[in-house]
Design a protein around this nucleic acid. Structure first.
Lengths: 204, 204, 204, 204
DNA sequence: GATGAATGAGTCTTCATTCAT
DNA sequence: GATGAATGAAGACTCATTCAT
C-alpha cells in the first residue's frame, strides 16, 4: 500500500466518521425529542460538525431519517435472527413465533424507537437495494430459511416471500397501533391472537 | 319554537358551516398539494374564513388531519358495506373478500387519499369514541355481521373482533406500501396471496 | 324607596358584580401567570363573563392593571396603618419604622404581588384623585399623622408630604430590586441601613 | 499575524458590527416609538440585517432592552463622573450633589431615554458582572471615591456602598415618577428637598 | 347591558439553505 | 472537504376589537 493510499483511506475514514456522527446525533435526537422537533441545526450541533457538512452527506432531514429507519429495522431483524438461532428448537413454526416475539418485545421495550420506525419495520427486510451488503447477507438468510421451509410444504416461492413480507407488515402495524396509540387493546392481549393468525398464514 | 330559539339555531348552523368549510378546504388541499405543503393560511384562504377562525375549531394542522383521516376511512368502510350489501352473495367468505376488494380498489383509484389515510384505514373501524353517532351505527353493523359469522363457527367474540381489526391493519399497510412505495411488488400481484391469508385468518 | 329604584339598584349591583369579578379574575391571573401572559380572553373566561363585557368596564389590559396596582398598594398601606395603630408605641420614629417594616415584610411574603406593583407602591399614597373615597380617608390619616409629627419638629408642610412620598419611593424601589432582582444584596441585609436612612430623612 | 488570523478577526469584526447595528437600531426605535410599539421586525429592518440575525445575538426584545438599559445608565454615570471631575470643588457633599444634579438634568432633558431606563438607573452602578470591563473601571472610580469619603467620616464600608445604591434608587424613582407620571409634583419643586435628604443620607 | 363568534392585522420564531472564507 | 454566520421566506399563532343577536 502506498503512502498516497494511506492518506486516502485516512481521509475516507474521517469522512465516514462525520457521517457516522451525524447518524448517531440524529438518532439520539429523534428518539429524545421526536422527529418534528429535531432540526438540522440540532443534529449538526450534537454531532459537533458544521451545519453545511450535513448537506455533504444527506439531502434533508427525511433522507437521514429514512436511512435510520432502514438501519434500525434491519438491526432488529438481524438480532432477532441471532437470538432465534441461539434458541434451540428446530421446529419451523416455533422458530417463527420466537422470532416474531423477539421483535414485538424489542419494540415494546423501545417505544421511542417504535415511534421512529413507525409501521415500517418491514423496510429492514425487503429494501435490499439500499442496504449495506453485510446487512443484506444476514437478511437474506432469514428470507432463505423462511422460504425454504414454506416451499418444502408445497407453497410456491413467490407466495412464500410475500407471506414473510405480510407478516412483517402486520406485526409492525399492530405494534404501532397497540403500543403507541394504545388502541383498540394492548399488545399483550392481542399477541396470542396475532400468533394464531401468523400460524394460519404459514400453514399451507 | 320561539324567536330566540330560532336565532340560536341560526348561529349554531353558521358555526357548523364554518367548521365544515374548513374540513372541505383542508381535505382538498391535502389531496392536491400534500400535507406538508399545506399551511393553515392556505386552508383558511380556501375556506374563505379568517385565520383565527381555524383555531376556534382545531388546535393545529394535525388535529384537522386526524379528524379527516377518521372521517374518510369511515366513509370508505360505510360505502364498502353498502356495496357489499348490494352484492348478492350470502356467503360470508365471499362477502368478506368482496368488501376488502372494494376497499383496495378504492384506495388504488384514489392514491392521494391513500397518502392522507396512510396506514390508518382501521381508524374508521375502532375509534368509536371519536366518531359521529350516525357513522358509528353503520360501522357497528359491519362489526356485528363479521363477529356473528365468526362466532357461529366457534371463534370467541374477542378474537373475532381482533381478527377484523388485524385484517384492516394488514390491508391498510399492504395497500400503502405496494401502491405508494411500490415495494416489494404491485398490489395486483399480491392481492391473490393477500386474499388467501385473509381467508386463513377467518377460518377457525 | 320605590319599586323602580329597587330594580335600579339591583341592576347596579349586578353591574358592580361583573366589574368586581373581572378585577378578581385579572388579579388572580396576573399573579399566577404574569401580566404579559394574561390576555383579556383569559380574564373574561376566568370571570365567567363574555369577552365584550370587559370593554364595558375597562379600556384595555393596562387600564385594569393600573387600577389593580392602585387598589392593592392602597390596601397594603391601610393594613399597615391598622397594624401600626394596634402596635402600642406612641413614639413617632418607632411607629414609622414599624409601619415601613410591615410593608416590607408584606411584599417579601407576596413576591407575585410585588411583581405586579413593581416599584409603584407609592401610588397607594398620593393618587388621591383616582382612589375610592373610603380608601382615601384612611390614607389621609397616615398622611396627616405623619405631616403633623414632622411639622411639630419644625419641618414645613410641603417638605413633610414630600418626605413621606420619597420614603415610599425608596422603600418600593429597594424592595423590588433586592427581592425580585436579588441585587445587589438581600432585603434583610439592607434593611438596617434603610431604616437608618429613613430616620435621617425624618430628622429635621 | 498570519493570513488566517487576519481573516478570523475580519469575520469577528463583522460579527460585532451586526450586533452594534442592532443595538443602535433598537435604541433609536425604542426612543422614537416606545418599547411596545417596536417589533423585532422594525429593529432588523432599521439595522439593515436579516430578521434571523437578531436571534443570533439576542433571545428576544427584552434581552436587547435590558442590555441597552445597562449600557445607557452606565454611560450617564460615567459622563456624570467626568463632569464632576471637571467641576472644580473638592468638597465631597458639593461634588455629590453636583453629580446627582447632572444625572437629574440629563434625564429631564431626555424624557424618552428616561422612559427606557424606567426606574433602573442604578443598574449602571451595581451590575458589574454584566458590564464591559472598560465601563466597570470608570464606575469603580465613582464607587471608590464615594466609599472612601464616607468611611473617612466613620461609616463602615458596606453601609457606604449601600448608601450610594439607595441614593440611585431614590433618584431614579423620583425622576421617573415626577417627570414621566408628573405626580405628585414636578422635579424642580422636589429637587431641593431631595438634595436635603441625600445630604442627610451621607451625613454620619 | 351582555354575549361570544368572527376577524385579520400583527408578531414572533424557526430553519433549510447558501456561500465566502 | 469543512465551516458557521447570515439569510429571509415561510408559517404558526395570538389577541384586541367588533358587532349582530
Amino acid at each position: 500500500m502506498t503512502l498516497k493510499n494511506n492518506n486516502k483511506s485516512l481521509t475516507q475514514n474521517k469522512k465516514q466518521l462525520k457521517e457516522e456522527e451525524l447518524f448517531l446525533a440524529a438518532y439520539d435526537l429523534f428518539l429524545k425529542n421526536g422527529i418534528e422537533k429535531t432540526s438540522i441545526d440540532d443534529i449538526t450541533k450534537n454531532a459537533k460538525v458544521a451545519k453545511g457538512t450535513f448537506y455533504l452527506y444527506f439531502s434533508d432531514k427525511y433522507d437521514i431519517l429514512n436511512k435510520l429507519i432502514l438501519q434500525k429495522s434491519n438491526e432488529i431483524i438481524r438480532e432477532g435472527l441471532a437470538k432465534t438461532n441461539a434458541f434451540g428448537s428446530k421446529n419451523f413454526k416455533e422458530r417463527t413465533l420466537f422470532f416474531i416475539d423477539y421483535i414485538i418485545n424489542y419494540l415494546k421495550d423501545n417505544v421511542s424507537l417504535l415511534k421512529l420506525i413507525n409501521k415500517n419495520i418491514s423496510w429492514g427486510l425487503y429494501r435490499k437495494a439500499i442496504m449495506k451488503p453485510e446487512a443484506y447477507n444476514d437478511v437474506k438468510k432469514v428470507l432463505d430459511i423462511f422460504v425454504k421451509n414454506l416451499t418444502k410444504s408445497g407453497m410456491n416461492e413467490e407466495e412464500a416471500e410475500m407471506t414473510l413480507f405480510m407478516i412483517f407488515e402486520l406485526v409492525g402495524s399492530i405494534c404501532f397501533t397497540t403500543i403507541i396509540l394504545k388502541e383498540p387493546t394492548d399488545i399483550e392481549s392481542i399477541k396470542p391472537i396475532l400468533f394464531k393468525k401468523i400460524l394460519a398464514m404459514i400453514s399451507v
